[in-house]
């Protein structure tokens, strides 16, 4: 077809308005999923930690999703590598989840429970124990930082 408008002309206000309208229509037709930027930030942050990623030990159920109002059963998950072991027990806690954890070897360790849009922090006691109460459900990764600056992290699990 012949064009009534010259492709070589500068863009004008009508062109700008058309693009703005297109952005609006595509946002309505195919909206960006809720929370995608936060999930992306979460994934990118974990990728940038340069931490040693622990392996999940013998707990296939840990990767199963726990969503909505499904009751959270108490369960224990162990992560390990050559340099560290983390064991956590998850239990229902007032609509959220209580995380009782233990890190070996023990030391003055900083613990982070990372989830999209939130980081919960605590420290271990001398025996390597820590507790996080009423955490939200959903995907999360546990990061343990040592005084020497090194860190280990768990794979992403559903809490």
């Amino acid at each position: 077809m012949t064009l009534d408008h010259d492709p070589q002309e500068p863009m004008d206000d009508v062109d700008e308005q058309l693009l703005a309208d297109l952005a609006r229509l595509y946002a309505a037709v195919d909206p960006v999923p809720e929370g995608l930027a936060l999930r992306s930030l979460f994934t990118a942050t974990l990728a940038g930690l340069e931490s040693e990623v622990l392996e999940l030990v013998d707990a296939p159920a840990a990767l199963a999703t726990v969503r909505g109002e499904a009751p959270v059963e108490a369960r224990t998950i162990t992560f390990t590598s050559e340099s560290a072991t983390i064991m956590i027990t998850l239990s229902p806690d007032d609509g959220g989840v209580r995380v009782d954890g233990w890190v070996a070897p023990a030391g003055e360790l900083q613990v982070e429970l990372r989830s999209p849009g939130e980081v919960r922090r605590t420290t271990t006691d001398h025996d390597g124990r820590f507790v996080l109460t009423r955490t939200g459900r959903g995907p999360a990764s546990l990061v343990v930082r040592r005084p020497d600056g090194t860190a280990v992290s768990s794979p992403v699990i559903e809490i």
Binding site: D4, H5, P10
Partner: peptide, 15 residues
């Protein structure tokens, strides 16, 4: 810098 062929065509069809 210019509207280019795609926008030119869109405007033409729309009008």
């Amino acid at each position: 810098a210019t509207r280019g062929r795609c926008l030119a065509k869109l405007r033409t069809v729309l009008e």
